[in-house]
Amino acid sequence: MAKITQDQAHFLLLKINSLMGLIPIGVFLAFHLGINALRTVGPLQYQLSIDLINNLPFLFGIEIAFIYAPLLFHSMMGFYIYFSGKRNVGHYGYPRNWRYTLQRITGLIVFAFLIYHLGTTVAPKIFYGKHQFLAAPFLMDIMNAEFQTWSGRIIYLIGISSATFHFANGLWGFCVSWGIIIGQNAQRNASIVFAMVGLVLTFLGFATVLEFSLNPIPVTPTVGE
């Protein structure tokens, strides 16, 4: 294989970054919000889904390869992108320019939120060695506690809506920057479709938060210790 120049690497990294926002990060986000929304169906369904995930083979490898590494990459690239431009909605407040600016700001918010989210869920899980069937009740306890306070609820509402906006708008950006949609009409229509996707995901996330806030139900391991 020919040697890749710096310019080619730059182009490739940005392209991969855009793609990565969709696969796997976007897919994971949709999956994550969808699964969590099972909470609105009932605690048991929710717990079973978490059990299923926590008992996947090679879970650690899957999480690293499909979630943490891409997230880290997307974040680093995101910081680079954030600092490569200078936002100017003050003078040029066109809707698309606002979305450009919000994409960058929500990126920062989601990054901060993820630190919080991982720090309050995954980190204790690892720290206390709660794996497999122990993970679900442990995490649900944490979440129950989280949503008993307004601060917790607000942090999650902001985090979720930022993530869904970032994803839906990023989906549009992906389609444009890979040249999948070109014309102005196509771009507008795609905006509408992706906005719906974003709204559906936001709805799922908010419903879950609402359910947790209204009905904190303590759960026990599905399998005895």
Partner: peptide, 19 residues
């Protein structure tokens, strides 16, 4: 345009077309 400063750097703010 496939290098640093090229097309991939565009953030699709689309202020250009308005201006």
């Amino acid at each position: 345009v496939m290098g640093k400063g090229g097309i991939a750097d565009c953030g699709n703010a689309q202020a250009c077309v308005e201006a």
